[in-house]
Design a protein around this nucleic acid. Structure first.
Lengths: 155, 155
DNA sequence: GCCGGTCCGGTGACACGTCAACCAGTTCAC
DNA sequence: GTGAACTGGTTGACGTGTCACCGGACCGGC
């Protein structure tokens, strides 16, 4: 465990750990806020956003899964739970016997309408407000670049 | 849903989403690598690192929990699972009848010795290698600053 | 038509984290 | 000392994500 490995320097380790910690804290806080204030999990929120983005509030499971980069199984489980909470409904396709659609319900629309301002406000006050515009741009650039590398890497 | 809320600009939204996506992907990849190559979850790894940091490989639950910023309940559950996998053992304290200690086992030492080089290499090739030194410093600085703000915020 | 491959989604088992409640040991005021 | 408050850890229920596997629907060549 001591030879031939290019261990992280103190600086690298510090940067890496801080970065990971930031994300954990931030996401944790946001999720907790959303949950307690709006009875929505972060994932519920993400699904509902994707449904309200489209005029009739209806999207195929697989389409949603691609947009959120989720596995189909995860989507199936999660939509099932959201149906239980009354946030969405399930519809089948007359064209393709395999396809399933998720449609946002009235309750779903109300939930996201209530949650969205809180969420945006939290993203601002917990994160964006503490970054200078140049930092934000740099961060976006870095994020995009690294994600691209990750994509190349598994292709 | 359209009035009085300071919605995110396209730039802000892009930065925020890219940032979140980066983390999800990165952490997901690392966890998956660790799991398939070393039979360790990312959390197992974190616990074992904290145990090998100390000379006799023994630390009190609560001590570990503070170091990792975990809830005590999470620590209890997770150590229980790690005991099942033979990575650590549980010991009680003669001094304090409430205290419990986790001690790394030989199998635990072997597991982390095998995993650590892979993990470090992955952090490099998936993340650090794509950042210029100045970017890394900037990222660390931002991370530390925002985490501090989060801390202030819940105090 | 039919048959193999692919696609869409569902299912069950499991690992994980959180929450709330709980219990036993310790501490401290009095 | 005794009782109340606190501390360290455990437990069970629940929501969640992953994995491996299944089953039905579609599509291509023949």
């Amino acid at each position: 465990m001591t030879d031939g490995v290019n261990w992280l320097t103190a600086e690298e380790q510090h940067a890496w750990r801080s970065f990971v910690r930031l994300h954990e804290r931030l996401i944790g806080r946001l999720a907790h806020l959303l949950q307690t204030e709006s009875r929505l999990s972060a994932t519920d929120y993400a699904v509902l956003v994707n449904l309200t983005d489209v005029p009739d509030g209806r999207r195929q499971y697989q389409d949603l899964a691609r947009a959120l980069e989720w596995e189909k199984s995860r989507m199936s489980h999660h939509i099932t739970r959201m149906i239980g909470r009354g946030l969405v409904a399930r519809e089948e396709s007359p064209q393709d016997g395999r396809a399933a659609y998720a449609v946002i319900t009235e309750a779903g629309r109300e939930a996201i309408a209530a949650a969205a301002p809180l969420h945006v406000q939290a993203v601002r006050s917990l994160f964006l407000d503490h970054l200078a515009p140049a930092e934000l741009r740099a961060l976006a650039e870095i994020s995009v670049r690294v994600v691209e590398k990750l994509d190349e890497n598994d292709a």
